[in-house]
Design a binder for these strands. Structure first.
Length: 453
RNA sequence: GUGGGCGUAGCUCAGCUGGUAGAGCGCCGCGUUGUGGUCGCGGAUGUCGCGGGUUCAAGUCCCGUCGUUCACCCCA
């Protein structure tokens, strides 16, 4: 058999890298649950009509087909989900009668997109979503809450500092209406390209494609320039002299989000009111979020979300929602492959129990069992090589302690060596404990490699 | 999906206008007859991503393909 080649866009990690990913997932899970969000897992597939609703035909969906369904007559019309929001909306409708609203859930799962892979952009990837959904009416304070929860979750991760950019659709749409823009939606789409096109090009496009006058286009650009980490943006917006009812509602909401996040912001997590943020998706109706990672702006956003007044609807009842999504693969894979992040060992074992000779496996197994009984991940040496070799076996894998048994199986005493310091002490497997930090693989960062480009 | 760069040992890479493969690190052994890391000495490893073509001769040139990366697109 020839050596298999990797599959483009379907990243797989080495054991130490996976340990980092698991740490991140555990950490996110713990924080989400700390805030009372319930865990949910939805199936991998959705009906194609669900996936392609709202005319999102540009989505590259992987379609599912049975091998023996040659003529396609039994075509199920199923595809792999490309995000976690669409499956969640479907799930809410399907289980509306059995859920308690407002319903808060998190979901950490894979998603699939057939797009061309690039750094931080894959065909199979993991993301973490939190959403709150209600029936008929979802109070605004949940917009603030989801931002606070994500801030709490992300600032606890061993990652570069994150920046949450916030804006409000009502604010910008009210502004565009207030200046008399004939098609506010078109303006939003064009403003969203500000990070790629020059301001002159955007201005020209606003005139040509959104039907604005030069003066109106300049007003839009001045709005987009506004940015602040506190509520001072509000006066600057009002200073532009545009009046509209919707604009005032939007300003008030954005102020509330920025104020509400003030207590969770810190050196590792910044919240910025950013009036150029638009997000192309058309289903957002109020607050919009985007998350960026410092030093990795080339990845674009590593998370995003916002408020949808109609996350789901069955025709009779409407379910508004607000949520945020964080790209685990997008964030972690580039950090891992650049060596910025890694784990200090490639196995869970904290202790390697040495094997004195081939007949002493029983003794070593007994020691290992006693350590495991107290929650210490332990493995027994593969063979009775020279102790130097056995220590090296541990060293290669990053296992911090080697246990040398003494006496027979019933005694279970011995000496334990910290192979990093070389310190060796007499120990009892029913009593000895490693430092808490050594119990599990630790995430280590290399700040020297953090800066690039 | 469209267009460009790159692909040589486990890793990072060198290899000139084509002339039958190299360094550093790592790995293995011995010095060191049961406690690694330092040091010294010795050693192994490549279908030069894969397939085809041009040529007396291809790692080197051409085409295709896969992988990777960048831009567009899209977004996590």
């Amino acid at each position: 058999m020839t050596k298999p080649t990797p599959l483009s866009g379907f990243p797989e990690l080495l054991p130490a890298q996976r340990a980092v990913e698991q740490h991140v997932i555990d950490r996110l899970r713990r924080t989400f649950e700390l805030h009372g969000f319930a865990s949910l897992e939805t199936r991998a597939v959705e009906p194609m009509d669900q996936l392609l609703r709202k005319g999102e035909t540009s989505k590259e969906v992987y379609v599912l087909r049975r091998l023996h369904d040659l003529d396609g007559s039994g075509d199920s019309g199923m595809g792999l989900h490309f995000d976690l929001t669409v499956p969640f909306a479907r799930y809410v409708l399907e289980n509306a009668g059995r859920l308690e609203f407002p319903f808060r859930r998190y979901q950490i799962q894979k998603a699939w997109r057939g797009e061309r892979p690039q750094e931080g952009r894959f065909r199979e990837f993991t993301q973490a979503d939190i959403d709150v959904v209600a029936r008929d009416d979802l109070p605004f304070h949940f917009d603030v809450e989801v931002a606070r929860v994500m801030a709490d979750a992300l600032s606890g991760l061993p990652l570069p500092p994150m920046r949450l950019r916030v804006n409000n659709r009502k604010l910008i749409e009210g502004f565009y209406r207030g200046i008399g823009a004939p098609d506010p939606a078109a303006v939003i789409t064009i403003i969203d390209k500000l990070d790629k096109m020059s301001t002159d090009a955007v201005a020209a496009s606003l005139v040509a494609d959104a039907g604005l006058s030069d003066v109106q286009a300049q007003q839009c650009l001045r709005l987009a320039e506004i940015e602040s980490t506190d509520t001072t943006f509000a006066d600057r917006v009002r200073g532009l002299g545009v009046a509209h009812e919707l604009l005032e509602v939007g300003i008030a909401e954005l102020e509330a989000v920025v104020e509400g996040c003030a207590s969770v912001a810190g050196p590792r997590f910044q919240v910025v009111a950013s009036l150029s943020l638009a997000r192309g998706l058309d289903y957002y109706t109020g607050t919009v979020f985007e998350i960026y990672m410092d030093g990795f702006e080339n990845l674009k956003s590593v998370g995003g979300g916002g408020r949808y007044d109609a996350l789901a609807s069955d025709g009779r009842t409407t379910y508004p929602g607000v949520g945020l999504s964080f790209g685990i693969s997008r964030t972690l894979v580039p950090l891992l492959s650049r060596g910025v992040l890694s784990a200090d060992r490639s196995v869970p074992s904290a202790v390697l129990v040495a094997l004195v000779d081939d007949d002493a496996r029983e003794t070593s197994d007994a020691v290992a069992q006693r350590l495991r009984a107290r929650g210490i991940p332990t493995e027994v040496a593969a063979s009775a090589q020279k102790f130097g070799k056995q220590i090296r076996y541990a060293e290669r894998r990053g296992i911090p302690f080697v246990w040398f048994p003494e006496g027979d199986a019933t005694e279970g005493t011995g000496r334990v060596r910290d192979i990093r310091s070389g310190k060796q002490v007499d120990a009892d497997p029913d009593v000895w404990e490693p430092p808490a930090d050594d119990l599990r693989p630790r995430v280590v960062t290399s700040p020297t490699k953090e800066h690039h480009e």
